[in-house]
């Protein structure tokens, strides 16, 4: 390829003649960041833009996340793309609960993030009312570029996260605030 693309840099390490030591956390974080399998929870317009993100022009595969795992057990990030009605809310939560740790959530588009234009009796005003959201992507629908930005942000989160994040007190507290045990 003619264009120079940014290849992931190795983790910060202590190098010496013949050895390279790095924190194990960092290494696994890096692995996780480059193998984020998405669970596309596409309900409406944003789902079509997510298709664009997966398709040839934007190619989410470059980040190692082209394998959509429609089974939540296998997915690393939940991409909620599209309006989530109140009828749908419990199901989103269910899917989130079924995901195995570590898990991240991206709310793609105005509807998923805040309800957007649909300030109505039937629409949930943002999925952060039922599940913790890591990244919000604005736009209605966002461009594939913005969705890629969101994914890259999750990569950053994954890289800098401790291996045992889910055992920390803060995380438990966060989940408890959503009444998730």
């Amino acid at each position: 390829m003619a264009t120079d693309i940014k290849i992931v840099e190795g983790p910060a390490s202590y190098e010496g003649p013949g050895f390279q030591a790095t924190s194990f956390d960092k290494l696994i974080g890096l692995a996780r960041a480059n193998s984020l399998w998405p669970l596309p929870f596409a309900t409406s317009c944003c789902g079509i833009e997510f298709m664009s993100t997966m398709a040839s022009h934007y190619d989410l595969a470059r980040f190692g996340s082209e394998r959509p795992s429609f089974s939540p057990r296998q997915a690393d990030m939940l991409l909620v793309a599209g309006t989530i009605a109140k009828k749908m809310g419990p199901i989103v939560k269910q899917v989130y609960l079924q995901m195995a740790e570590p898990r991240w959530v991206i709310a793609i588009g105005a509807c998923a993030s805040s309800g957007g234009i649909f300030d109505t009796y039937s629409v949930l005003q943002g999925i952060d009312r039922i599940i913790p959201v890591d990244v919000y992507v604005p736009g209605c629908p966002p461009r594939p570029e913005q969705i890629l930005d969101g994914v890259m942000q999750v990569q950053e989160l994954a890289k800098n996260e401790s291996l045992r994040r889910r055992n920390t007190e803060e995380y438990t507290k966060l989940l408890n605030s959503y009444s998730i045990e």
Binding site: S114, D119, Y121, Q125
Partner: peptide, 26 residues
């Protein structure tokens, strides 16, 4: 068909509000 079974009113009647009462940012 469209709304939840639990809903106790028929929303398109004029007397019912459109908006979600729980919103925070408007």
């Amino acid at each position: 068909i469209l709304n939840m079974e639990e809903m106790d009113y028929h929303p398109m009647r004029k007397q019912y509000p459109l908006e979600d009462e729980t919103r925070e940012d408007k």
